[in-house]
Amino acid sequence: MNTGDFNLTLEDKKALLAEARCAIEQLFGLNITPRPDLSACSEAIYAHCGAFVTLNKYGQLRGCIGQMISDRPLIETVHNMAISAARHDYRFPPVTASELSDISIEISVLSPLKRIRDISEIELGKHGIYLVKGVRSGVFLPQVATETGWDLENFLGHCARDKAGIGWDGWKDADIFIFTATVFSEDEIA
């Protein structure tokens, strides 16, 4: 999949958000959100690409889990990542049924990874980073740089130390990959 020929329609985005919400509701035996009608969607929802599902509560992070790549259709990846974000983000206790109405879902659909040789290739706010050093790895989505206001050194340093666990300067001898993301949320697509 080339980033140039991958595009999600508004109907695709609505269906993916509905699928994520349905997946979380099903954890509690609820059927509040109707299952998405996929007949109006493009083939993009069946593409095999990485995706992250982010849960926010009152504008604060409540859970975020994703896959950099996937061998499953996007709609399935989103379903599975929504459940994981609600239940398995080690930074937070599992989401409860009473929180559902306060949680907003955001989805980031990822382009293929591109290995870079020089950090000058990273465009803050446009590119996410995936650092790999040995068995350790860490990822920041593109929006992290924008949300935090970090410069490039802080973006790399925080990812290396806080996500990959390889120390602040660990990025200097790690493999660095960049990617872009199509990001959309329930708040913007109401």
Rank of each mutant, 00 (worst) to 15 (best):
I75W: 12
S39W: 11
I122A: 04
N80V: 03
P34D: 03
L131N: 04
P142D: 03
V139M: 08
Y46S: 03
A44M: 10
K114I: 12
E123Q: 15
G66K: 07
P93H: 00
K133H: 12
S42M: 09
A44C: 05
F140I: 06
V78P: 08
L110F: 06
F140Y: 14
H48A: 10
T96D: 01
P73C: 12
V78A: 08
F140R: 02
R91D: 00
G125F: 13
C41A: 06
Y46A: 03
I107Q: 11
I83E: 01
V78D: 02
R62N: 05
E43Q: 13
L141F: 06
M81V: 07
L110D: 02
N56M: 06
I129C: 07
L38D: 05
P112G: 03
I83A: 06
F52H: 07
S111L: 10
L38W: 15
L74F: 11
V78H: 08
L110Q: 03
G138Y: 07
A145M: 08
R115K: 15
E99C: 05
I65V: 15
V109N: 04
N56E: 10
V144W: 13
A51T: 01
T146I: 13
K133Y: 06
G59S: 09
D102S: 13
W150E: 00
L110A: 02
A86M: 07
A97R: 14
A97C: 14
I116E: 00
S98Y: 08
V144I: 15
